[in-house]
Design a protein around this nucleic acid. Structure first.
Lengths: 362, 362
DNA sequence: CCGTATTTGTTCGTATGTATT
DNA sequence: CAATACATACGAACAAATACG
């Protein structure tokens, strides 16, 4: 007959929670006694106790024997949320990643969030491990730099779980194609295009490109490399383009560069390198064959890292926002958490930084 | 008469928890029904219900209406503990710190701990901020790289609080003098000594030293610098020693170096630099005066960082364990947490890495 | 300091509803 | 359908802590 769907103690709980919503119960204020509530709502004291018990566990009430029951909303309700944000990057110590992490950390700290950091060493099993660890306790949000983004994503289930749980997340540098998710990245294709365009302007025509193929950054930079050649009406022979994977990075490009340099007159006059790290490596290769940068071979890197200015010949390179990107990612994620704002795609335009590693050619 | 101190439902709860401890209740196993337990322990079914209710909230049990009550220990019991370790360093992105963090992170991840990272930018207010944030939720342990270790420690109260709470912590690189705490560090004094000793062997006699004075690493390296001179019976004039603080690091040492180099015949023939970062900076100063490294001025750095080999003239420098130290710190801290082992003082001996920045002198 | 009233904490008993097997 | 299990609800009693006169 009567509505038995919802238990009395649940209805009572809802009623009391509405009191908090309406501000009827301020911090420290005494709640009517169990007996009073029981009489008022026409239920037994036991039922009231069950309601109070749950509200106490959830941090809304504090019950003190002999004194009474008191409201206790303020901190707890906030503190209930984790206020912890995770970052998963491929590497921690190498290259531009420390700067990205630093930018994010500074922003998070200033907004009162804690930063959980984990790395995948560009290995998808470790990515899974990191995701599991991160989500083993409540998390407010997650920033992820995809591992081997060009290869598809075996950990898709975890990301879908995040979406289900309502944990917002962002990608940086690249995103998994399968995943609907906002991303902060550099327009890598434009970067590759600019590098080649600049070299062509300087009179180079035989330009070799070295790109990583297991992440999308490399694939996109290569795309730009090819597009710029096409726009200039220059044919690119397969031999001019070297692609490699993470596992091969310390060996294959170096060897291929040596091969190209040994072709005498027909050798390339410029190298476009996937990043500054590789550029420094290939500058060594050039030196090893007795040639000079930039007189004999010009070199362009990517990311404007500390390596670019630490090396003997200062590298001409394309910028990467690094710290700014980390900071922006953190700030966007906080907006998503606190204001439920939608994530926005942010694309940074890389700029050419001209230093000493490219020479004019006639 | 009977022990009324501890309520029956609490005693029952303790008993059931001991069943979990002893492995009597495996995951998924059905627990005897409320009525059975009630009869077995000579309490009412309501009392059993209260116990079960709490155990369910805490994740030990799962109650399914019409079926029964089931054990559910595995993940939860682990998850109950924090399994989170914090690292507070001065900097995140600069220099050797990413490598230390990386070593620690890899170790922690493999042992199932999460890593909370925060930086102080070598500022004590931010150190306090970081400590507060870190300890705002349960923490298993903490690794700290002291901020301006040569000055006093205004955040002492926080560290004492950690000790009281029984949260183990370790220091790396240096420790606060006021604090009884284990530390993993390099024998910086020996490093300073070795640098000077090597230069003396190469025939140098006028050696200038540049050291940071607001952290103990700098102070100790200077100590070794002076001790080596004293052991060789060589007097050190005040002008030969330049000390500086974090705030002055980008300007003062460079200017002082220029001044020293302009003294013509009496100028120093070698620089001992607080770290590789400064060494690279001072090599630029040498180049700016038209002199050459190492022909005119030899330079020695500290820490064997990536800068040491990235620069034009490869730096002769002293080693720093970096990744190994981070890994060791994490591993020690885990032993302290899990086995309650005492922290051990670990001191690494720096080794001289001879490269191209020091020349023989006659 | 004592006694009393009030309030929450603990325990038992009983009854009914509802899901599962 | 019946038996069994947990879920909800009420009533009663006593214990322990607190407040107050």
């Amino acid at each position: 007959m009567t509505n038995r769907q919802i238990p009395k103690y649940m209805k009572l709980k809802k009623e009391l929670l509405s009191w908090f919503e309406a501000g009827k119960l301020q911090y420290g204020e005494q709640v009517p006694s169990e007996n009073e509530i029981a009489e008022q709502f026409g239920v037994s004291r036991q039922t009231v106790r069950q309601t109070f018990g749950e509200l106490e566990k959830e941090g809304w009430l504090e019950r003190i024997q002999g004194k009474g029951t008191f409201a206790r909303n303020p901190e707890r309700r906030e503190g209930e949320q984790a206020k912890t944000i995770g970052i998963i990057t491929t590497y921690i110590s190498d290259y531009i990643f420390p700067h990205i992490v630093r930018g994010a950390e500074a922003e998070l700290r200033s907004k009162g969030y804690r930063l959980l950091l984990s790395s995948t060493d560009n290995n998808k099993d470790k990515e899974m491990e990191s995701l599991q660890l991160m989500t083993s306790e409540p998390l407010s949000g997650l920033i992820i730099e995809p591992t081997k983004s060009a290869e598809g994503n075996p950990n898709l289930a975890y990301f879908l779980e995040l979406q289900e749980k309502g944990i917002p997340f962002l990608m940086i540098n690249e995103k998994y194609r399968e995943l609907e998710c906002a991303c902060l990245k550099v327009d890598d294709e434009a970067g590759g295009y600019k590098a080649v365009q600049y070299l062509l302007e300087q009179g180079h025509t035989r330009i070799a490109g070295f790109f990583k193929r297991d992440d999308l950054q490399g694939v996109n930079r290569l795309k730009g490399f090819l597009a710029a050649h096409k726009a200039a009406g220059i044919n690119v022979s397969p031999k001019q383009v070297v692609t490699y994977t993470t596992e091969e990075k310390n060996d294959l490009p170096y060897r291929k560069a040596l091969q190209l340099l040994e072709e005498g007159e027909k050798r390339p006059t410029a190298f476009v390198c996937y990043n500054d790290e590789l550029a420094v490596q290939l500058m060594e290769a050039v030196a090893a064959t007795g040639l000079q940068v930039p007189e004999d071979v010009s070199v362009i890197g990517f990311d404007d890292s500390s390596l670019a200015i630490a090396s003997g010949t200062k590298l001409t390179t394309l910028t990467h926002p690094k710290t700014v990107m980390g900071q922006a990612a953190a700030s966007q994620l906080i907006a998503m958490i606190e204001q439920g704002r939608m994530a926005q795609e942010t694309i940074y335009e890389p700029e050419l930084v001209v230093r000493d590693s490219v020479a004019k050619r006639n």
